[in-house]
Simulated assay, not measured.
Amino acid sequence: MLTVDFDRLGVGAGSTVIDVGCGAGRHSFEAFRRGANVVAFDQSASDLNDVDAILQAMAEQGEAPASAKAEAVKGDALDLPFDDGSFDFVIASEILEHVPADERAIDELVRVLKPGGRLVVTVPRWLPEKVCWMLSDEYHANEGGHIRIYRADELHAKIAARGMEFDHRHHAHALHAPFWWLKCAVGVDKPNHPAVTAYHKLLVWDMMSRPWLTRNAEAVLNPLIGKSVALYFRKPAAV
């Protein structure tokens, strides 16, 4: 389930990509599949071990071009261990809402991006996230949980203040918003609640089968209740 639109971002063979806060690796895998040289970056060693194993399996099974390279790197998003201008593309999907010093993290995302390169940041959208917070403290008030709710214009302003040129905005995962409202309403600690398991089966079916009905429904609903918002920027080329 991708939040980033890779066709719009323009990742291709030979691109250098860092996926900051890669988590389970979904965006790293897609960039690698498209032939990019990928750094899957996260602070969780256990997540990175799993991501690295899948990247290696993809290479062995020919799911990525032989020319593409991928590595998993552990570290802190507030102090990325890379030189200025190291990457053509920087992806930061669903991480800034977890980071107390979000402006410092944004500084680092911009710093490691090459002039002319592109940055995409995704975060939970304000309205769906606000509903979750209203329904459940457990949803966000936990170690490593969400510490803020962004308005898209607020995040846009923070990134643009670093000299980045805004390019595009879109919303994603409308079908997931009601799922999380339902989980919050019945209790996030009750994953086996019949209503939750039924909705989860629907989401799995949608992701695996991609039927036209749910694809069209989500396209219509994304501008209204899309669970995530994605903001795309370009770093001005050096003069």
Rank of each mutant, 00 (worst) to 15 (best):
P100H: 10
G85A: 13
A195H: 02
I147M: 06
V186Q: 02
D84Y: 05
W126N: 11
A185S: 14
K114E: 14
P223V: 08
P128Y: 03
E143L: 13
A160Q: 11
T122Y: 06
V112P: 06
A217L: 15
A198R: 12
A141V: 14
H171Y: 11
W181V: 00
L119N: 09
P223T: 09
F179V: 01
V220A: 12
F82A: 00
V186R: 01
E154A: 14
K114C: 09
L221D: 03
L109D: 10
A195C: 05
E138C: 06
D84C: 07
A160S: 12
G85F: 08
W133L: 04
H200C: 07
L96H: 05
H173P: 00
D84Q: 08
K158Q: 09
L135W: 04
V131R: 03
A198S: 14
E154W: 10
D206T: 10
N222Y: 08
D167C: 13
V204I: 13
D84T: 10
E129T: 04
L175A: 07
T197K: 05
T197D: 03
D189V: 03
V90P: 00
N222V: 06
E165K: 07
I159E: 04
V121E: 02
E143Q: 14
T122I: 10
G117A: 07
V131H: 12
P124L: 10
R215Q: 15
V120G: 00
S93K: 03
D83N: 14
L221S: 03
A198C: 11
W181G: 04
L213G: 10
K190M: 09
L109R: 12
R125I: 07
Y199W: 12
P211F: 11
F166E: 01
E165Q: 02
A92R: 03
E218L: 01
E97K: 08
A198E: 14
A177N: 08
N222A: 04
A177P: 05
D107V: 06
H98L: 02
E94A: 15
L113C: 09
K201H: 11
P81Y: 08
R148K: 05
L182F: 02
V99P: 06
A185G: 02
T122P: 07
E97I: 09
V196I: 08
L109P: 06
W205D: 14
L175P: 00
T122S: 15
D189P: 02
D83W: 11
K130D: 11
H168M: 02
A92T: 11
S93T: 09
N192P: 01
A141D: 12
E129W: 02
Y150M: 00
V112H: 09
W205I: 01
V186N: 00
L182W: 02
H173A: 10
V110M: 09
I95A: 06
